[in-house]
Design a protein around this nucleic acid. Sequence first.
DNA 1: TGGAATCGAGACGTATAGTATCGTAATCCC
DNA 2: GGGATTACGATACTATACGTCTCGATTCCA
Lengths: 207, 207
Amino acid sequence: MAASERTGNGGRPRNGGSASAGRPRSEEAHQAILDATLVLLSEVGFSALTVEGVASRAGVGKATIYRRWPSKLPLVVDAFGQLPAFEDADTGSLEGDLKAMLRQYLENFLATPLATVYPSLAAERAHNPALGELMDPLLKGRRRPLDAAFRRAQARGELASGIDIEMASDLIVGPIAVRLFFRGTTIHPDMVDGMVELALRGVRGGS
Amino acid sequence: MAASERTGNGGRPRNGGSASAGRPRSEEAHQAILDATLVLLSEVGFSALTVEGVASRAGVGKATIYRRWPSKLPLVVDAFGQLPAFEDADTGSLEGDLKAMLRQYLENFLATPLATVYPSLAAERAHNPALGELMDPLLKGRRRPLDAAFRRAQARGELASGIDIEMASDLIVGPIAVRLFFRGTTIHPDMVDGMVELALRGVRGGS
DNA sequence: TGGAATCGAGACGTATAGTATCGTAATCCC
DNA sequence: GGGATTACGATACTATACGTCTCGATTCCA
């Protein structure tokens, strides 16, 4: 899988364990390709991203790319894996944790052009189950600090233990995703606080 | 071919108001193109949708398509406009309204392959501002019944008048969009109730 | 009846995906 | 060291799709 090819030892020969002579794959080229992919992704977006463009920007031949990734999609998935994710913040309260993490994530990733990879991959996975399987572990990992905050809150007794954390996490992330990607709205960092409060207290609870 | 060629709004000539001789645009072709677009969209998805495929499926020439839509994207946007949206439900309570509307929308649209148009358009708009402007009125219109339910609840005193309806609406729609499009999860209609309750009462409010 | 704009069909040029083939360069094994 | 093996960058190649354009025929208006 692509995953095994980017697990640190990127410049590995094709056969992981068995005998392998010959020139090893260049780790430099590997990283240059991923970097170029991210740069181009933020410059022209996913649909205008061409493999030839990546090759040229990375200073490698096309074959060097196709030797590592079967197509443009897994390449972008791997590049996606190098993007900043949620960073755990343990402030002592659930509300504080969520606000801090969302602010950080917003400023470091969602507000950058790189964030457009997200809806592009979402669009593709709908008709490409293999892509979904490639993405899911990545997505899950990226969101882990969020789930951890909910679990800490439960441990503190701050949150009912019966709460469905997955659903709660969707409730926090969902509105931001919709605004950003579907409605094309920019989100001011200050708006994050209001959103978190609304999600925590509920629409009906009133502010 | 003896069909009545109504010069309706759909097949309007290039010049809206001024004099126009010549054969009028075929309303049949217009609708056939939109229909074929939707069929193919659900069959192969957006990225694999080809204008040639649409032309062939609709039984028209490519020029007939490009005469009406400058590119594939606006065509898909127009087709998108023909898809089922929220249907207003006035049950007497906000919770009832939301549950009913979401269930209906889920079953009539989100659970069908047609729903994949959504993330595709979201992906494109990120790097195509013109598309965003084309979509926004459509999106706003589709969500209007949802906003209306919130306003009714406010009028009944069921909901604090200070609530930001746009944000509340995002809170309802967001989790579903994230599950469906980003995480690739299917949503059982029964799950809608739990989501609405969580959004209304808040994560912290209780079970 | 003639002008105008349409129709379906498809040729055309450009661009990109993905494959295959160059000659060269790096590494392993003997 | 030397030979085998594999990767390297570069580029030619096939196939597909976009968007433009032309064709003769059709349909409507004046």
